[in-house]
């Protein structure tokens, strides 16, 4: 029995090493001064980070990415909340269509989506190919599955239909019922899918590269461009970028964990 546990320890140990070596390697490289014939760097320095944080192009790329994220995720919340609310509460029979439309992007890779988007928006009445606005549209669809599931599950958890019925019975209008009863109750549930969407868009490259490219440089495009230049500087970008992702997903994990633990505590 003991030897078998040792076996599992070896497997898990190897796996963890395998998974974190690229990260550790990149981190060390971003901090390395001189490093060419030893296992660990001979000297450490933060000059790559200083150089990075003085690079205006980096800030502009970060700004572009944040702009896209804020606009897209904001738009998604503002549009999807009422849409899902109205359909679940008042047009129940359309729910399966809403679900199909929302889950479809999950099976369509960006490379396929981009083909059609280029076709539709490079000529014709709306020519937005090459501008950030086509990315807002593409990203709206990219995060749709996550936003849909997050909002729908929150609405179900709080029994939105009964809540609205009760509020209307007490004389509230539909809008009042939504704003004062349903919305405050689901806001924390939406937070998780919002953060997930932010992380997803932060690491999006395919759409950005194919639809807009260098005309509106996002953090991923910037990174791809620096790929073949100074390795140390690029490592510093990768580590900075990954720290942001870790922060986002870490918060998501913590929030979901708390949510999952709460009911089991109640059950005792």
């Amino acid at each position: 029995m003991k030897s078998s546990l040792a076996f599992h320890k070896v497997i898990v140990g190897l796996l963890v090493i395998y998974l974190i070596i690229p990260l550790v390697g990149t981190f060390l490289f971003s901090m390395a001064g001189k490093w060419d014939h030893t296992i660990l760097p001979e000297s450490y320095t933060v000059k790559w980070y200083i150089e990075l944080f003085q690079d205006e192009r980096f800030y502009r790329a970060l700004q572009h990415t944040l702009f896209l994220i804020v606009v897209t995720v904001g738009l998604s919340v503002v549009i999807m909340l009422p849409t899902i609310f109205i359909i679940t509460v008042y047009f129940g029979k359309w729910e399966k269509w809403l679900q199909a439309a929302s889950m479809l992007p999950y099976g369509i890779p960006p490379i396929v989506g981009a083909v059609g988007l280029i076709k539709v928006y490079s000529d014709g009445p709306i020519q937005i190919a090459g501008t950030p606005w086509i990315l807002v549209g593409a990203y709206f669809i990219t995060i749709l599955p996550f936003m849909y599931q997050g909002i729908r599950n929150s609405l179900r958890t709080v029994n939105a239909i009964q809540l609205v019925d009760a509020a209307e019975l007490l004389g509230a209008t539909k809008f009042q019922a939504f704003r004062t009863v349903v919305f405050p109750n689901i806001i924390s549930g939406i937070l998780v899918s919002t953060l997930l969407s932010v992380a997803l868009l932060f690491s999006e490259f395919a759409f950005a590269n194919l639809l807009v490219g260098g005309r509106f440089e996002t953090i991923q495009i910037y990174l791809a461009d620096k790929l073949n230049k100074s390795g140390h500087l690029t490592s510093a970008i990768v580590i900075t970028y990954y720290s942001i992702i870790l922060l986002l997903t870490g918060t998501v994990l913590k929030l979901t964990f708390r949510k999952e633990n709460a009911p089991s505590l109640l059950k005792g």
């Binding site: 990260l23 791809a224 790929l227």
Partner: peptide, 8 residues
């Protein structure tokens, strides 16, 4: 994944 992973 993606670009950062390839770089790594």
């Amino acid at each position: 994944e993606g670009i950062p992973l390839s770089f790594s």
